[in-house]
Design a protein around this nucleic acid. Sequence first.
DNA 1: TACCGCGATATTACATGCAGATCCGAATAC
DNA 2: GTATTCGGATCTGCATGTAATATCGCGGTA
Lengths: 222, 222
Amino acid sequence: MAGVNETTAARTRVADAVCERLREMIFTGELPAGARLSVPALAEQLEVSRSPVRDAVLRLVQERLAREEPRRGAVVAHVGAAELAAIYEVREVLEGLAARLAVENAGRRLVRALQGALDDHEAAMRTADLAASTEADMRFHRLIREACGNAEVVRLLDDVQTRVRLAMRTTTVTSGPRQALDDHRAILTAIEAGDATAAEQAARAHIFRLRTLLQQQAEAGA
Amino acid sequence: MAGVNETTAARTRVADAVCERLREMIFTGELPAGARLSVPALAEQLEVSRSPVRDAVLRLVQERLAREEPRRGAVVAHVGAAELAAIYEVREVLEGLAARLAVENAGRRLVRALQGALDDHEAAMRTADLAASTEADMRFHRLIREACGNAEVVRLLDDVQTRVRLAMRTTTVTSGPRQALDDHRAILTAIEAGDATAAEQAARAHIFRLRTLLQQQAEAGA
DNA sequence: TACCGCGATATTACATGCAGATCCGAATAC
DNA sequence: GTATTCGGATCTGCATGTAATATCGCGGTA
């Protein structure tokens, strides 16, 4: 079980560990977009039998991290510009919903946590630490959706974030962190004020701007 | 392969057929909410081996039509009132998005199709044909989302509709067809006028009313 | 009668066998 | 030089074996 149970020994399920490992390999680029997910090859590489690998690959397909090619098995999904735009259209309304619900549900604890994420984000920007900046950015969004009290919203936005991460690997796009910081401030202000409508609008505007930015980059790069 | 390949002989994949058959069994009530999805038992009943049944059950779990009980395997999901409310919150913003995009993308062809669905819906109401009424209702929504040009929206709303159907089986709720008809008319009017904002608002208001209705029924039933 | 331990049964999750299908490359015919 | 066909290797998808383990009924005991 080398390379698998090292990280996840908690669950006794090999298929879960394999699935997690494959996700990791996809996000680190070890398995780039378009790479074939050969069940026997992966089984040998991860030193497990084919059954859990097969289960894991099927799950990745259902999560849209992999695609079933006609008769070539599964390959790592390539999230193109058009698909990313579609995802962002959905993300816009979902983040707006999450922000609105978060205002209605949460209190000062959320505000403090968001302020912390924002501070970290600012600090990371000052030191030009891209990784920390991205982490703080994602944390900000995660805090909001997890405070919204709607499990469906959380699940769908988790899914969105995962696929956006994949798209970031497959296509070279950046999400304009400077604008993002201002946007986040506006969202936090609205949440702090307890203004659900303003929070929804600010969150939607944030994602809308990101989408516009991505479209411009896609057109420039094409 | 009795009872499986009868309906779906096209795809050479047994697991797909089993998955479809299980869905059917769930929606017809042959497998009620909470029923155990025993892989060996289903394999014998459907006269296939355990492998495709296992694959199919795992897929149903991922689609949230089944849930993994700790160590009892999978059971048919029970969509409770709270979960249904959460789904409807999401559905509200997604249907709104779909309506807005549909206005921006589609033309008279869509309007005619929607008018047809509406007419059928009215006719079904007059004859008190519940099944036909439900069908026309669902068709109306499907037409809009499939005209929106965003594959993500289509997929997510398909998912929503599936789980709503499951909820309708598991809990006894009706979606107030009379109000729905008026709502649909308002949506169509906005689409016909090419007013994207009005269409979005009308679609959201429609789902919002349904959600309110469901909540009232849940409270009354509790 | 209520409670509890225990054995029989059944199920999950993983390992492995196997047939059919597909793709790639090489050799051959023209 | 180009097109075609054949062969080998590999993969997918289904079938089945198997160990560990949980569930459930049942009889014994207080």
